[in-house]
Nucleic acid binder design. Sequence first.
DNA 1: CCTGTTATTTTACACGCGCAAATTTTCAAT
DNA 2: ATTGAAAATTTGCGCGTGTAAAATAACAGG
Lengths: 334, 334
Amino acid sequence: MEEFAAIIGVSRPTVSKFFQDPTSVRKSTREKIEAALEQYDYQPNIFAVNQNRRMTKNIGIVVPYLADPFFAEIARRIELRCIAEGLRPTLFSAHGDQELEIDILNNLKLLKPAGVLLAPLGRRSERKEIARFCQDVPTILFDSNIEDIGAAFVGSDNFQSVPMMVDYLCRTGEAPCFFEMAPINPNANKRRTAYSRAMQQLGHEPMIVRADGEDWDFEKVAYDAAKKLIETDGLPSATVLCSNDRLAIGFLAAAGECGVRVGHGPGCTLRVAGHDDHPHARFTYPSLTTIAQDYESISNRSVDKLFELIEQNGDLGERTEVLFEGRLIMRSSA
Amino acid sequence: MEEFAAIIGVSRPTVSKFFQDPTSVRKSTREKIEAALEQYDYQPNIFAVNQNRRMTKNIGIVVPYLADPFFAEIARRIELRCIAEGLRPTLFSAHGDQELEIDILNNLKLLKPAGVLLAPLGRRSERKEIARFCQDVPTILFDSNIEDIGAAFVGSDNFQSVPMMVDYLCRTGEAPCFFEMAPINPNANKRRTAYSRAMQQLGHEPMIVRADGEDWDFEKVAYDAAKKLIETDGLPSATVLCSNDRLAIGFLAAAGECGVRVGHGPGCTLRVAGHDDHPHARFTYPSLTTIAQDYESISNRSVDKLFELIEQNGDLGERTEVLFEGRLIMRSSA
DNA sequence: CCTGTTATTTTACACGCGCAAATTTTCAAT
DNA sequence: ATTGAAAATTTGCGCGTGTAAAATAACAGG
């Protein structure tokens, strides 16, 4: 920048000002600089800029597992929104690893981000570390809530969506059992609780089926468990509500392979429903009846909240929790 | 770092040396520093470090579309490998956007990465810009090749895999037609060419069916096109080889919905095969017969090549192209 | 105990920039 | 032409670190 400014015949800070806001320099200098830019393709070093700016244009996005299409899709939308606003998003995946999540947050601090959108690993996350991070950096939590941490939370309302699905399933056939893995985050817990309550409300005994497995290979865990369940006739109900679509996808695959016809039509002996409206849910066979988490709304609102937070200089006052209602998506599987 | 060093009673550069290599300082000083670290939790600012280091520990990973599970999975493996080696991977997605890809590369340069793993957008990429980038930064290309650009290429051998699949399909039934979108990258082109050649070799006339659509919403594009084709009986063959698994997944969904039974068993009227062994391919119904691109090998070899490149100081000599053979995965759909 | 060599630490400078204060320029009004 | 306020630019300093060269400390050998 020094050399570049010398060539033009102005001081370096003038060039610096130009890059921060071209209208902040006199028209004649602006034109000189722009002319020089054509020739010498100089570009400020973002990382040096970040080191010195009071407020950077960096946005951190942290998700628990990026190879999960749900997070990939949300992250994609968030990134595009940020880019459109002239901000610089950087995306991190904790890869399901708690230590890595903390590492990421520590490095993120050094990026001096204007704000961070964090979908925590959930139950496994180290609450204290995350709390400390949120104190230093304006952070919006999404997808998975941690009480009292972050400036706001944006997610979906499991206590609305799950009862709705239970109700639908009961109205249209046998009451569902609930198929889950060991709860990997608060959502999974809430969904189970919501299921149990809803069943009791309708006068049914909750029936919970748990698949073994701890990692993020949901489909495989569900597939293996479902296969065994179907073969041994171990399902407590011929209607299965899965804790999320990835489990449902694995379940459907197992059912298909066992020759069980899944769906709500005649000749079908099993109904399977999911939750999330995973990008692939409409392409399974049979297509998956599920609850749509509104990707668009969740990602948009998270970003909105973050921008608001940034403008308010890191303080939104009272912590708010925005919960979006799920929409029942009736497809073929239930 | 200044303060921290003062507290300990050494000069700042000594602390700096410690963080680069703890054994490079005297044992007594090392112990003093480590003791102080327990108390004051100081941590060097990575971005300041990067600004000054000759060689950083940064690795750039650029993929064309991260919401595609294939890339998400490859990126995940690459990231984990890098982290295990003590490097700092940063992941970028071009989101299918050519300009964004160039932007990313420009910023990546400023990160002074030790090396970059780049899966280019492909056909749409601006060859010149990417070439310039590769001249400045040690880069390994993967997935999608651009001739003569980058220090090496790691990908899969479409001219081996596609003929193998064509051969298999012909041996077991009707010769396949080829279902594709407008080729979005070199792989798509190569696969079509390989298909045509293989068909001719076996004495068949190539039959190519193209679906309309340009973006990365492959499943939907395939679904829409397949539905129309099936309803209007427009398929030139009852065996369909899809250019990739995502198209196949969309195709299967359409077939299922139209009541067409897909598979190689009795009562099936359509066979569908894919290519890539997408993470979901084994969970479709019917499960998808496809070609496995060896994720493990491709990601591992790419990383190996990159490390080699870094050690050789950015010059591997002759540009090499490593092509992995695909494995035929016989599942139920064909 | 002295000397020469090597291991370690310190000094001085560099990286690429933003920011506040001081200075200069501009321009309208007298 | 003079004045004065506002706009633009420049000066000087700071950010948090790496690195080469100079200075010091440690150590082995006589």
